[in-house]
Amino acid sequence: MNTLFSLRTVRQHGLCYPDIDIAEGCTSFITGASGCGKSSLFCLLNGTAQAESGTIVYRSRPIEDYEPLALRREVLLVGQQVFLFDGSIQDNFATFYEYRHKPCPSAATMLAMLALCQLDMPLHTACAHLSGGERQRVYVALFLSLQTPVLLLDEPSAALDAHTAHAMLGALHAHCQARGASLLVISHDVSLAQRYAHTHIALPTPHKEQNHE
């Protein structure tokens, strides 16, 4: 299998990352204590942040060699903080796609993406009326619909109950496997990692924090 990402001696915000290799087409889970740099790692991978030192290689080329927007559109990061516009689910798809100057996906595609995220709701539902967990699933479905070769999910199940979390991660895992896409997930839930991860990367607790404790 080809290597998708490899990190060598990467430092950022005073944290030293271990050398990490992530294989293409796999589902990889990243776990670790709060403050160990999981979310920052994702920002390094999609190029919205820059490492202070060290090298990050994506598909055998240093990450700086890529055109930043193109990289970001290929290595799609679904952040932890959910943001949805006012209006319905359908409106959100339309607005988000407008920002990419792309035609909005069909209703069938939108519903399929929502179904993968374990959300069975009509597209005209107003997002303001959704619960936190429902909003998170709409958010993931939006990003999922772009069908990128790499998908980074930061705590996708933070607002979900264990049953729904397993169902959603299972569906996303199967979907990405079928498409040959790589899925990287940050999660606190070890049972999810044990169930779906091909690779499980546990980031070490930073020394800074150990000193405090």
Binding site: R73, L77, Q81, V82, F96, Y99, L146
Partner: peptide, 17 residues
Amino acid sequence: TNRLASLLNWGAHPQDI
């Protein structure tokens, strides 16, 4: 900030954001 970060990750051009 949430909106900015989300749209940036979404791959929108900063100018459009």
